[in-house]
């Protein structure tokens, strides 16, 4: 890990003079890590550069670009974060112009922690570390193998623990709507715990993550109730790939399939009559 840190620090040090800032992680008080904008002229800040735990940096990029649309920025991103930036670009949340992606390849330990199928970047031209293969997601596989009744029981059990903190939505870089369906009392019961069955909150959120979730697993990590939220998203991602030949973050030019028109063959694969 420390080798990667040294390499990353060196990479940023070289890029720093050519840009207005580099988004990365910094160790703060008591060793707690948070996103930070490293600025040229302050390379000493890189002494507290950090790699892990990862943070939702695509969102940091959005915050900064919103205030400074023309800033020349670089961002240290892992595979999931790169996918996040790409998807946010497709939805006009961030700009790829004037943006340098510094790819940070995950190590085995990190990939296992995230049950990550793609722990590597594909677009970044500058990268640190060597890419490794994806790992299986035993949780999702085990869930997929359950019967209908077991699935129902599984989520009943899980969602009764939900404390409606909105953390899964708040931390998600792909959740950027100005008006959120989850806050609309037409769909989700406001002011109530536990959420009634079936949990419209979670099904609606899963629906809205269709072709958007980049499998960064930030939602699971921030969930105080430890609900394995990514299961939904990963299963749907599989369907989206099969039905609409779409994978998040893979091809910058490919439009997300929620856009109106059916492409050639989409309908045939949708399983509808």
């Amino acid at each position: 890990m420390s080798e990667r840190l040294t390499a990353l620090r060196e990479t940023i040090r070289q890029i720093l003079p050519q840009v207005d800032g580099v988004i990365g992680l910094k160790t703060g008080p008591a060793g707690i890590v948070a996103p930070y904008l490293f600025k040229p002229g302050h390379p000493e800040m890189l002494d507290s550069l950090a790699l892990w735990p990862k943070e939702p940096v695509p969102d940091t990029l959005k915050i900064i670009q919103k205030a400074y649309p023309n800033a020349r920025l670089a961002i240290v991103c892992r595979g999931c974060e790169e996918r996040g930036v790409v998807e946010m670009f497709k939805h006009a949340q961030v700009s790829l112009e004037n943006l340098t992606l510094i790819g940070l390849q995950c190590v085995q330990e990190e990939a296992l922690f995230c049950r990550c199928a793609k722990p590597y970047t594909v677009h970044a031209r500058v990268t640190v570390g060597s890419p490794i293969a994806g790992v299986p997601d035993p949780l999702t596989e085990a869930f997929a193998a359950k019967s209908q009744a077991e699935k129902l029981a599984f989520w009943k059990e899980q969602f009764q623990h939900c404390i409606k903190c909105y953390g899964c939505r708040n931390i998600c870089p792909q959740c950027f709507c100005n008006v959120c369906a989850l806050e609309d009392e037409k769909w989700v019961e406001t002011g109530r715990l536990p959420l009634p069955n079936p949990s419209l909150y979670h099904i609606i959120r899963a629906m809205h993550m269709t072709a958007k979730c980049v499998a960064c697993r930030e939602c699971e990590e921030t969930c105080p109730a430890g609900i394995p939220l990514a299961i939904h998203f990963r299963l749907v991602a599989r369907d989206v790939k099969e039905m609409f030949h779409y994978e998040t973050g893979a091809v910058i030019e490919q439009k997300p399939p929620q856009l109106l028109t059916l492409e050639e063959g989409d309908y045939e694969r949708s399983g509808l009559p």
């Binding site: 009392e185 037409k186 019961e189 406001t190 002011g191 109530r192 009634p196």
Partner: peptide
């Protein structure tokens, strides 16, 4: 007056 509707 059922539980989940009243709030709405």
């Amino acid at each position: 007056g059922t539980d989940h509707r009243s709030g709405e």
